[in-house]
Computed example of a mutant assay.
Amino acid sequence: MERIDVVSVLILDEERKRVLTVQNEELWSLPGGKREEAESLRQAAIRETKEETGYDVEVEGVVRISERMSSNHVVFFTFRGRVVGGKMATEDPEIQRVEWKDLSEAERLMPWYGDLMALWNGPSVYRNEQGGGHTIRELTHEEDFRSVFPLIRQLRTDLTEEKYVDLLHVMRKEGYRLFGLARDGEWLALAGVGIRHNFYNGRHLFVYDLVTDSQQRSKGYGAMLLTHLEAWAQVNGCERVELTSGVQRLDAHRFYERKMGYNRTSWVFRKELT
């Protein structure tokens, strides 16, 4: 089954409450299209928007990920973006019209996006920025594993570096995966997860470890990383995310429940991916 990546860009005129839309045959949508070979998602979003609308845009994080399984595996990425130049026009022969639509009209024409203002104001689920931005990626190499040991040791204080590396290699064979959030080469937050199956959760992502550097807490890095993992889990067919937290960590409990929207049963926190 072929994997196809499709990008779109949500561009909102906040002052006038309008959204940039394009009409392809009879269907209205956000500007965007298929990612080409050797092209990043961000590059595809910028190129497709220019071709379809005539505008030069900057794009920020992905605010929505969805997928469709048919003859191909199609994954849809919606970026948040803004106009920085150009003028309304189109180079794409498949685009009939380019218009700024009122929010209510845009939501009526594109109901699959839901509340566009909420989407615009929501957290980004993916970032890959250079020059002072934040990068979230999976760790797969020995040098990466060792570089994050000081951070994981803030959570698992009894670990030595060698014990950590030895256990990590065994755990990875059993499906454990490490994701880190970094800025300018410095690790700020780390999560260890695995996809699991059981009768009450079905296919789900279990978060074994989640830690933000003690000097970087309350800056949104934990939320950014957990939101990325939720999107990654959804793309990988998980129905929900589950984690556990010690009853003594009341600050963490408030974060999971109030900030991230998790439901709590005793020390178990669970979130539906819908």
Score class of each variant (00 low, 15 high):
231 A>F: 00
148 V>G: 08
95 I>E: 06
82 R>V: 09
190 L>M: 03
233 A>Q: 02
55 Y>C: 02
202 G>E: 03
11 I>C: 10
141 H>C: 05
53 T>L: 03
195 I>Q: 00
88 M>K: 09
48 E>T: 07
169 H>G: 05
245 S>Q: 12
13 D>K: 12
208 Y>S: 10
9 V>C: 15
47 R>A: 08
262 Y>C: 01
14 E>Q: 13
20 L>R: 11
148 V>S: 05
270 R>Y: 02
30 L>E: 10
272 E>Q: 04
206 F>P: 10
101 K>H: 14
173 K>G: 15
182 A>I: 03
197 H>A: 02
92 D>K: 03
58 E>L: 11
5 D>A: 15
274 T>L: 07
217 R>M: 11
237 G>V: 06
155 L>A: 07
11 I>S: 12
154 Q>E: 14
205 L>Q: 00
4 I>W: 09
270 R>S: 12
147 S>M: 11
120 W>K: 08
263 N>R: 14
46 I>E: 11
112 W>Y: 12
190 L>H: 01
78 T>Y: 01
107 E>S: 11
42 R>S: 12
257 E>Y: 04
167 L>M: 14
97 R>Q: 14
95 I>V: 13
102 D>P: 15
224 M>G: 01
247 V>I: 15
141 H>A: 14
68 R>N: 05
80 R>V: 06
176 Y>S: 07
33 G>R: 04
70 S>E: 11
40 S>E: 10
96 Q>C: 07
76 F>S: 08
183 R>D: 00
164 Y>V: 12
71 S>C: 09
162 E>W: 10
77 F>H: 10
171 M>T: 01
213 D>V: 08
146 R>I: 07
43 Q>V: 09
105 E>L: 15
186 E>F: 04
210 L>S: 06
262 Y>V: 02
175 G>T: 00
238 C>M: 08
47 R>F: 05
245 S>E: 14
108 R>D: 12
28 W>V: 05
134 H>S: 03
235 V>C: 06
258 R>M: 06
37 E>T: 13
179 F>V: 00
40 S>I: 07
97 R>T: 10
227 T>W: 07
22 V>S: 08
260 M>N: 03
60 E>N: 09
240 R>L: 13
78 T>M: 06
58 E>S: 11
131 G>L: 08
118 A>W: 02
213 D>F: 03
88 M>V: 04
8 S>F: 05
262 Y>N: 02
123 P>N: 04
243 L>M: 13
43 Q>E: 15
52 E>Q: 15
175 G>R: 00
134 H>I: 06
55 Y>W: 07
206 F>D: 04
18 R>P: 10
20 L>D: 09
132 G>S: 03
92 D>N: 11
265 T>V: 15
212 T>K: 09
6 V>H: 11
135 T>Q: 06
181 L>E: 01
63 V>S: 03
10 L>Q: 14
223 A>G: 14
41 L>Q: 05
78 T>Q: 02
9 V>P: 11
50 K>T: 04
245 S>F: 09
32 G>N: 09
230 E>L: 04
